[in-house]
Design a protein around this nucleic acid. Sequence first.
DNA 1: TATATATTTTAGAATGTGCTAATATAAGGA
DNA 2: TCCTTATATTAGCACATTCTAAAATATATA
Lengths: 135, 135
Amino acid sequence: MKKAHVDGQLCIGPTFTKAEFSLIKKNLSDQKGLDSLADLLAVSGNRQRLKIIYLLHAHKEMCVCDLAECLEMKTSAVSQHLRKLKDKNIVRSRREKQTIYYSLVPNVFTSNLRDILTAEETKEPHSFMYKEITQ
Amino acid sequence: MKKAHVDGQLCIGPTFTKAEFSLIKKNLSDQKGLDSLADLLAVSGNRQRLKIIYLLHAHKEMCVCDLAECLEMKTSAVSQHLRKLKDKNIVRSRREKQTIYYSLVPNVFTSNLRDILTAEETKEPHSFMYKEITQ
DNA sequence: TATATATTTTAGAATGTGCTAATATAAGGA
DNA sequence: TCCTTATATTAGCACATTCTAAAATATATA
């Protein structure tokens, strides 16, 4: 089984053949959802935005200035975070008079997030995340 | 039910009382795992790093230059991504001669990621992420 | 209409991230 | 030992992100 030289760099370790690399690369580029998933994770993976997600998870819906008060942030900053969450279909909004209420969109991604948040609640810090599965 | 003025800003919409805000803020700061979870999501929420996670999910273990070849990146860049993933206990490494093999750490977080990646595989792009749950 | 409340948008500054190129470290083999 | 391979580290640049402050927009009410 002949090993493939990596393009610019030298690397002839105990790896894959050129044909195998081609297959792996093809399969990788076929996973069209990966980039979208990365974007969803990135938008959720901000401390303030995850707190927003948590608050909406815990309170069903909240307006911008409620969130600003809870997070001790300017409404302007909260609004910018909410726009990013809305762009990724993580939250939605409804208007009632001047007030705009935000809530989590019930989709597969937020449902996974809710599961993680529920499991995390009332637990020791980090216990959920870092506990290794030994099987 | 008297409404609370939000600190610097004016906001007396149909929101919570000061006492309720206190409780919500206290509960929020009690959720010690939120920041760690945000950090995990942020590290996973990078397109190249998620591809690394996907490749390790699909191939059990790979060395740095295998990953570099598949991702068409410099080994240096891959190595920097791997360090971030290792810092968050998402991947681990083992040495065999000069070669260092990386694999996913089997913990609750990576197990959730694997579930999402498995569900995403063989599906239409975006179908998994954006399909709304109507119940 | 004028004024107040609620939210959004924008510009700009500070900070963070991800890459390249160069260098360093580590292990194997001549 | 010297040279090659494999990986890691560092500095520095380009670009992205997040905040503040100010202005804009939208709605409600006197």
